[in-house]
Simulated scan of single mutants.
Amino acid sequence: MFLAHLSHTGPQWDVARPMEEQTEWPAHASYMDMLVDEGIIVLGGPLDDMRVVLAMEVESEEAVRVILSGLRRKSFGDYAAGFGTAG
């Protein structure tokens, strides 16, 4: 199953700094790269300065929550998110 995951920046996001200079950026980028390498994220990126969309090949919304909980522990803290399905 493919799920579309939409999220926006959390409370640690500093609008005055570019993405690559945000708190814990290297850890975030590394984790996302791993998810791409494992085939979990098949497409994704920023929509604008505040929102990101990910197309993920996973078994369920719960799987996405578990996968992205690792991201929250590693980098940016809590953020708002929503899901949609495709395929």
Score class of each variant (00 low, 15 high):
1 M>C: 09
2 F>A: 06
4 A>F: 06
5 H>P: 01
6 L>D: 05
10 G>Q: 12
10 G>A: 13
10 G>C: 09
11 P>V: 10
13 W>G: 08
15 V>C: 06
17 R>T: 12
20 E>Y: 05
22 Q>S: 01
22 Q>Y: 07
23 T>G: 11
24 E>C: 08
24 E>L: 15
27 A>L: 08
27 A>H: 01
27 A>F: 02
30 S>N: 09
32 M>G: 00
33 D>A: 14
34 M>D: 09
35 L>I: 09
35 L>E: 07
36 V>A: 07
37 D>G: 10
37 D>I: 02
42 V>N: 10
43 L>D: 12
44 G>H: 13
45 G>D: 15
45 G>N: 13
46 P>M: 12
48 D>K: 02
52 V>N: 08
52 V>K: 03
53 V>H: 01
54 L>N: 02
54 L>E: 03
56 M>G: 08
56 M>L: 14
58 V>A: 07
59 E>A: 08
60 S>L: 06
61 E>K: 00
62 E>W: 03
64 V>N: 00
66 V>L: 03
66 V>N: 05
66 V>C: 05
67 I>R: 01
68 L>W: 03
71 L>C: 00
72 R>A: 05
73 R>S: 14
77 G>S: 11
77 G>K: 15
79 Y>C: 13
79 Y>Q: 12
79 Y>V: 10
81 A>Q: 03
83 F>C: 06
83 F>I: 04
83 F>M: 09
83 F>N: 02
84 G>H: 08
86 A>V: 12
